[in-house]
Amino acid sequence: MLELSILFPSILNGLTTGAVYALIALGLTLIYGVLHIINFAHGALLMIALYGVFFLNAKLGLDPYAALPVMVPGMFALGYALQRFVIGRASHGKDENILLATLGLTLVLENFALYAWRSDTRTIETPYTFSTVDVAGAMISTPKVVAFFGALAATAILLAFIARSDLGRAIRAVARERQGAKLVGIDVEHVFAMSFGIGLACLGAAACFLLPAYYVNPQVGNGFVLIAFTIVVLGGMGSFAGALLGGFIIGVVESVGGLWLGESLGQIGIFVIFIAILLFRPQGIFGART
């Protein structure tokens, strides 16, 4: 059976990955909560952000963590523009259309990456790539520890922003009652685009924390997109606390499942959870049934 000495580091590893998953899922759940759309292109946009971090490092020698002030506003601007000029226009008020439009966006982004940067898997070398931190006897790689705390910090900032700022209030108002928000003078289209932008800004931050211990290739987003959806439905569509908890659960399940069943079969655990949640409890852990 599994020794505790293997299981413990595996759980810790899962938690560090889970924190980044949670950050990615937060972006997705924010977009869903406000716009009531499923952003199918979330994974592909994460891939674009990862390439952004990669090229900033490769061409300008910028450290991935120092890339945060570039990537977060950059992804925000991309998200704002996408919602305003592409996705918003394609919807015609039907959910299916948005799903198809974001599927189209995924195809464009993924294959643009394949065309422009080829299918090579790329990684970056930093002074701390191979260093480790001793956490209660388990050796965890430094970038993963940084990612854990960085993702948590980013999440805290996002939650404080949503709770305290005027824009955050507007976002919550639109999420709860679109018509009412319009009546009290909120520019709903602007809030939509802002929410989409903030959702992608989460991806920009996640990419900066991921890349030192991860890799990028044109297909890298595929793996993340279903994981992010699983977390979001697990936690309840639109629930921030749910996304956070869901992220940790999925991170640990993936890590421990991989230990048991091997890398390729370990992924099945996530999809089985996803299918089971969708079938039996689509409102998730925290979501209320509507």
């Binding site: 959910d95 299916e96 279903l226 099945i268 996803f274 079938l279």
Partner: peptide
């Protein structure tokens, strides 16, 4: 999926997840 009333985007996602499960199984 129809027994549990999955519609719209949820149905799309669950079918995608089934295809992925089959892909991983066929791979292993």
């Amino acid at each position: 999926s129809f027994r549990y009333g999955l519609r719209g985007s949820y149905f799309a996602l669950v079918t995608l997840a089934f295809a992925e499960v089959f892909r991983i199984l066929a791979n292993s």
